[in-house]
Design a protein around this nucleic acid. Structure first.
Lengths: 147, 147
DNA sequence: GTTATACTCTACTATTATAATCAGGATTAT
DNA sequence: ATAATCCTGATTATAATAGTAGAGTATAAC
């Protein structure tokens, strides 16, 4: 697994929307400013997240983005797998890989498999509600606005 | 952590040298043929591995490469950290990262930290002697030549 | 119904990482 | 000597990543 800027932006945007879950929509402009993300890039990311069912949007004057589900129902793993690179650490599970003559005998693959599983166990167990809780703890019971 | 072809090649070359530990040197040509790696690319990889102290080389007519240490003293983690991309799944531990305004409060970072640790626990616990043992088990007590 | 505000969509560009290739030069056993 | 082998540095090709640009569409408010 490798978290790119795009994935990082996606996670932060969702966290911000989670913090404002139940409120009015947050505009792209607003999110971009708060999260320090190039606005046109964030547009693309949010559109993708919408297709993935993570967020909803409202157009027009009081439009913006909303979290599509309660924060407790979205895990880091779901977002990472959807928007970022594969969780697997190596190409040998992907198409067209030709580094192995006999994949069944590859002893490395077993190790990468274990790494994948360990990674998934972690990212699939963390929800955005958990992250909000962590923020409160770090910030004396407040939901910090600086992400 | 993301294993590239380069890292994959490095690991396979070391495994092959481990299998032949105590024998005559293996030439780049030989390794490239057996492992199905572009020879000029493998040259670069082996040179790098030499600088890292993983392998030794002999020039001249019966030259080639040798493992610099017993297979039991080289872990996957050592090689991966040396030759491949960073084990950490994200850029926020690297230089020049500007996706966080306040790194100390970043709740994601804690998760990536846990992923790193879990990954390291695995790759640091596997030696090339372990891998050789696994090959034997997969191949009815033989050390398979097809990697 | 006009307008301001916001999202939507498609295409393009720059930068970097990855993978591979090329052309020789240096060393050493025989 | 010479053939086999490693050594060195430059170059190229491809793809992924990150970011930019601009025209279009929907909607709430007036």
């Amino acid at each position: 697994m490798r978290i790119t800027y795009k994935g990082d932006y996606a996670l932060k945007a969702i966290l911000d929307l989670a913090i404002h879950y139940g409120d009015k929509p947050l505009s792209i402009q607003h999110l971009a400013d708060r999260l320090d993300i190039p606005i046109k890039f964030l547009e693309q990311v949010l559109l993708e997240l919408k297709k993935g069912g993570f967020v909803e949007s409202r157009r027009g004057k009081v439009g913006g983005y909303l979290l599509a589900k309660p924060p407790a129902e979205i895990t880091l793993g779901q977002v990472v797998r959807f928007i970022a690179s594969p969780v697997e650490p190596i190409a040998c599970v992907e198409d067209g890989y030709k580094g192995c003559r006999d994949l069944y005998k590859c002893v490395f693959r077993d190790v990468w498999q274990r790494v994948s599983e360990a990674t998934l166990r972690i990212v699939d167990s963390v929800t955005f509600a958990d992250l909000m809780e962590n923020i409160k703890q770090k910030d004396n019971g407040q939901l910090a606005y600086q992400i």
